[in-house]
């Protein structure tokens, strides 16, 4: 068996080596393998293996004690596409992403610009904006449940002061997804603000003064200087927001459980439901594979197209 270090890029030497040199080289190789071992073991155990078994499962039928699982090609995928719930979930998730991502990014930028200005209570403003991020999503969802509860919730108590009727925000299909989006935006914007705030502080104040002397208005400065310089941050936040729009479903467990009538069912929640409520592991696996595929495509687009148009310092 030949043992070569993962870091070893030298071409193999065809000449026979003397035993001491060979020994030394083997020691280096072992050392290298030991260094990558922890990451390799963890990634294999929790990322590579699950991915492969998921893909494997997605191409096989659901096994029972009597009928063992057999290979059935893309049948699981075909089942998904034929399921109307699939299209509802996809529609929900696309709408969810299309609203929460731009709104939370825009809000984060606004808050960062404000928190970066010379305010009297700047520290307070910053920590106030960041508080939602510190809360666990489950706690945040419970908080919002208290806001949304019809009749006795904060929102209804407030609107009833003006004689408005009680609204069951989470209980009707027309408003449920919107209500869930509000919670997501509230939770995410503060987190993204921190990145913008950090990026803003690396932009030298000279640039603002130079633009000011040239007669640029605040808006021109924002559009021609600040936003282009913040593009790397925006790209990073965008990818994070996109991943979160698929990944972050904790609040659904508290707020709506995907209802009413699938109105707030998102992809990952649906996968969880299929896998652990209905024990339909193979269809959950197929759906997971589709989600992975979409995210992979997005990542490739991000690295190949968007990256080229961004100015990195």
């Amino acid at each position: 068996m030949t043992l070569t270090s993962p870091m070893d890029t030298r071409p193999a030497d065809p000449r026979p080596m003397d035993p001491i040199a060979r020994q030394r080289r083997r020691m280096t190789a072992i050392y290298g393998w030991l260094l990558v071992m922890p990451a390799l073991v963890l990634l294999t155990l929790f990322a590579f293996l699950p991915t492969i078994t998921t893909l494997w499962a997605s191409f096989h039928s659901r096994g029972t004690a009597r009928r063992p699982s057999v290979f059935n090609g893309v049948e699981n995928y075909a089942d998904l596409l034929a399921d109307p719930t699939f299209w509802t979930v996809i529609g929900n998730n696309v709408l969810y992403a299309a609203v929460t991502i731009p709104v939370s990014i825009a809000l984060a930028l606004l808050m960062a610009l404000w928190a970066d200005a010379k305010l009297p209570a700047r520290g307070f403003v910053r920590s106030a904006y960041f508080t939602p991020t510190v809360l666990p999503m489950v706690a945040a969802a419970n908080l919002w449940l208290f806001f949304y509860t019809p009749g006795i919730g904060v929102i209804d108590s407030f609107t009833s002061l003006f004689g408005l009727p009680s609204v069951n925000w989470l209980g009707q299909p027309q408003t449920a997804l919107g209500a869930v989006m509000v919670v997501t935006i509230w939770k995410e914007a503060g987190f993204f603000m921190i990145f913008y705030l950090a990026a803003l502080q690396t932009i030298p104040p000279d640039l603002r003064e130079a633009a000011q002397v040239e007669g640029a208005s605040r808006f021109t400065y924002l559009r021609r200087v600040l936003l282009p310089l913040l593009m790397p941050t925006t790209a990073f936040i965008f990818i994070n927001a996109l991943i979160n729009s698929v990944k972050l479903i904790d609040h659904l467990f508290i707020l709506t459980k995907g209802g009413p009538n699938n109105a707030t069912k998102l992809a990952l929640y649906w996968i969880w439901e299929m896998a652990f409520s209905y024990f339909d592991r193979v269809h959950a696996a197929a759906m997971t594979a589709l989600v992975l595929l979409v995210l992979a495509v997005v990542a490739i687009v991000q690295f190949s197209v968007i990256d080229k148009r961004i100015h990195y310092r």
């Binding site: 030298p204 000279d206 640039l207 003064e209 130079a210 633009a211 000011q212 002397v213 040239e214 007669g215 640029a216 021609r224 200087v225 282009p228 310089l229 100015h311 310092r313």
Partner: peptide, 29 residues
């Protein structure tokens, strides 16, 4: 404000806009 005083400034750090080309920097104003 500075823009109405009829003056230009050369900053110690030069304060060039890093994302703009030489040409765009010069004609920015």
């Amino acid at each position: 404000p500075p823009s109405q005083r009829g003056l230009s400034i050369v900053f110690q750090s030069y304060a060039l806009f890093p994302h703009l080309s030489v040409e765009e920097n010069i004609v920015f104003g």
